[in-house]
């Protein structure tokens, strides 16, 4: 058995690497490969871009406004509250 990772093996370990789930030895093998393999370096970089770009979906256009209906439900709920004695 060769101790070095192949590129095909490496791509399946990217998430485990980013999640900190690799053993110390696998982590070293991963980093050693990425540092010398141009293509896997590009692949790893693509994954980091992918994650960053997915995160941009949180800036969605819908601007939430509390609907009157929900607010009136809140006020009904509030009326049922036991009197506070703080």
């Amino acid at each position: 058995m060769n101790n070095e990772l192949s590129c095909q093996e490496l791509v399946e370990l990217v998430t485990d690497y980013l999640e900190g789930a690799l053993s110390e030895m696998d982590k070293e093998r991963f980093e050693a490969h990425v540092s010398v393999c141009y293509d896997c370096h590009s692949y790893f970089d693509q994954m980091r871009h992918t994650i960053r770009l997915i995160g941009r979906l949180s800036e969605s256009a819908l601007n939430p406004t509390v609907k009157d209906e929900l607010l009136s439900l809140f006020r009904d709920w509030k009326k049922e509250l036991p009197p506070a004695d703080e």
Binding site: S6, C7, Q8, E9, C37, Y38, D39, C40, S42, Y43, D45, Q46, H49
Partner: peptide, 10 residues
């Protein structure tokens, strides 16, 4: 098992 057509540099 090494890349045949490597990924593009984004």
């Amino acid at each position: 098992h090494h890349w045949l057509s490597g990924p593009q540099d984004w």
